[in-house]
Design a protein around this nucleic acid. Structure first.
Lengths: 127, 127
DNA sequence: ATTTATACTATCATTTTTATAGTGGCAAAA
DNA sequence: TTTTGCCACTATAAAAATGATAGTATAAAT
């Protein structure tokens, strides 16, 4: 079936047991929310430890970071690897191949954010 | 200042009085959430009335649709026009020029949703 | 006279996100 | 030796976002 036919028949979409009414909401069920795309963008540039993410994403709380990573793992975007048995732990998060398929979305979001800041907003530099 | 320099200085970004730490979260402050991108995608194909949107987006509740449209209007993505003074009202929502700058994001989300449904999920057709 | 249509709002319940503080065990600093 | 900090979280409670359901005013259709 081609895209045009698909579009007309408006099938529901099931991904990871979440059912949605259109491709956009299917995507948003998985990567919507305030922080998921931010986390994923930071993982595009390479594997990161929990604390690295925390420092690179100052606005997020630890609990939320933890929960979002868990969901991203469940949905197959991220792999979690533990390298020690006793504290201090070392845990690394890496994008999966499926996770990388999000790059076009994530890149267009970054580009838009920069453009919007330039034209409708402002950059705030600190000393 | 070029993109590379910008990237290194990591300025905060202020758009519509919301302050964020990176372009991605700046974008998400404006179009994150479960429904905004769905609504915007439906408006790309043209002006829609409230009830048209409601019917085209079956999962959303009226309250949420109403609230989201109000925020999208506040943030300059959408214009609301009222055509009657007494009920039954006729209200139309149209994407602004600024709203249309989101097309690359919205298109890549639709494309990804279709791809993910094909490869990791399934389409559910009804009789 | 009753029903239907429109674009909402009100109220309350549930879910998601945030804020803040705390945990265990190890290493380095004082 | 005592203290301090590090790491990857978890516990608890509060706030914000979203959902469910019902109701409003008026006109046109049945």
């Amino acid at each position: 079936m081609d895209r045009k036919e698909l579009f007309e028949k408006k099938p529901k979409i099931k991904i990871n047991d979440k059912i949605s009414w259109c491709p956009t909401s299917a995507a948003m069920e998985l990567i919507g929310g305030k922080w998921k795309s931010v986390i994923l963008t930071h993982l595009i540039s390479g594997t990161k430890r929990y604390n690295e993410l925390r420092k690179e994403i100052p606005g997020i709380t630890e609990r939320t970071l933890s929960l979002q990573l868990k969901q991203l793992e469940e949905d197959g975007f991220v792999v979690r690897k533990v390298f020690t048995k006793k504290p201090p732990l070392r845990v690394e998060y890496t994008l999966t191949e499926f996770g990388f398929t999000l790059s076009p979305i994530l890149n267009s979001i970054v580009e838009w954010g920069l453009m919007a800041a330039e034209t409708k907003g402002e950059f705030i530099f600190e000393e």
